[in-house]
Amino acid sequence: MNIFRLVGDLSHLLAIFVLLLKIWKSRSCAGVSGKSQILFALVFITRYLDLFTNFISVYNSLMKVIFIASTVATVYLMYIKFKATYDSNHDTFRIEFLVVPVGGLAFLVNHDFTPLEILWTFSIYLESVAILPQLFMISKTGEAETITSHYLFALGSYRALYLLNWIYRYYFEGYFDLIAVVAGCVQTILYCDFFYLYITKVMWGKKLSLPA
């Protein structure tokens, strides 16, 4: 464990709970893409299948349980409890256009052709594009609530911090995983446009609105 990965995991945890609290407190999921949340739930479920078979540490197992539970809870709040506030008219990204190619790529490019490894690879590739429905929804509505932009900032920062973690681990531990690094770069690059808007607008107390 290193500081980059720890801060990254905490930033990830913060993002998930900021979103969960926003939906719970405001009893509304307006402006939030349910499709992205479904993809994130799929990412965690396919990645943490080794939760019971491969014990790494208490921290690792605890975080896996929290990530799965909180994301499933978010999907539940969006599609069942506060379904009436779900903005399906703007959440129209065809996620099958993400899941199918990612699934195919996981079969073709992986470290080991075993079910668990292919599912892990699928999860890594899927996570890199899972935010697209959310970013697409914001581009359609033209704006995002400030709390939603804080959620996105924390979520985007987590994988950017993981990139620093991989640089650290490469030099100090000789650890390198090309699949995770490439997917992590793609994932972080997708946030660049948002990071620019967040830093130039939200940081100065303005609302995040995309240039029309």
């Binding site: 990965r5 995991d9 990830h12 080794d50 491969n54 790494i56 690792n60 975080m63 896996k64 990530f67 470290h111 080991d112 892990w120 993981y162 973690n165 650890y175 390198f176 995983d177 090309l178 995770a180």
Partner: peptide
């Protein structure tokens, strides 16, 4: 290039 400790990252 695989990490011997298996999947130790979240």
């Amino acid at each position: 290039d695989k990490d011997t400790k298996g999947k130790d990252e979240l």
